[in-house]
Amino acid sequence: MMWFDLALGLGLIIAAIGVFRSEDLFRAVVLFVTFGILLALTWLRLQAPDLALAEAAIGAGITGVLLLDTLGVFRQHEQDINPRSSSQLPDISRQWAANVLALIACISAAGLLAWSLFNTLKMPAPHHNLVTVVEANIAYSGVSHGITAVLLNFRSYDTLLEVAVLLVAIVIGIGLRERVTTSANATSDEGQSKLSEPPALLTSLVRLLLPLLLITAIFVLWAGSTRPGGAFQAGALIAAAGVLARLGQIDIAARVTTILRLGLTLGVFIFLIVAVSPMLTGKPFLTYPAGWEGTLILLIEFMLTISIGLILLSLFIQAPRPRIPAPVRNAIPATGPNAETNKGGDQ
């Protein structure tokens, strides 16, 4: 084992403790993103470049953007309503009970895990081993990259349900968002509010980055069949491009239209059609016809990339935002540290 691993592992733990201990939420989120980047490095050390890519793009990237945007909305909200009297009186007895509970839970979990890991060290490796099974069957999967073979062929059912999970999240997001728009009066500018004029530098930077991100996304998608990459990482890149475009005032997907719905469901829809069609010839659900595996996997991945990108982007854009009266709106970008966190928000 190398010193690097020791340091990286300790770094992860320290970053995590920093997240838990920091009083300021903004600081906690920044530390959390740092944690994500360290974790991406860790995945590289564990010979899992796919996970490194996914962690950087999704775990640290998209999650970080969503969190920062939320903090921005909270600060905006605090300014909208009169500065909240710090009514958050800590309930002492409750907090004390939670601390005791946490202590018990931590000690038992730590004891259990330590006992389990210590015993693993003493034990022979299990006789079952999926590594050899994957290797023996990968030739029939239509792709040569192990993880893609597992995700889109051997265990494609998991992936189907996983995309359904994403879809449920955005359905709830849209459901909660639209309600405000319909219940609010015509004066409400929610959902249609334009971003404040972005700096010229930002706009030109976005114009430059946007095609670059899209090309990278397509490459990552294409790479997935032979080496690290695939629909989820590519989808995250598409979403990142969308977030950038939004910052550069290129307005997309702000309204829920039939076209957007089509885009959101496209991935699952095509996946389901490809999965069901072999049943017409008497083959099991989710079987690829022989010889067509590679092509169909690429087709599904392409559609999934579009849907995942749109879903992740919509989770950002459709998230509930406060209604902002005009004068306050102009005042916000000037307020010190908030400016950073507010970037992602509708201002």
């Binding site: 079952h128 999926l130 994957v134 062929n153 265990r155 494609s156 083959k283 099991p284 690829y288």
Partner: peptide, 13 residues
């Protein structure tokens, strides 16, 4: 039992 995607259990679901 039903092997999804024609992949038997330890590899498939």
């Amino acid at each position: 039992d039903y092997a999804l995607g024609s992949w038997e259990a330890p590899l498939g679901i």
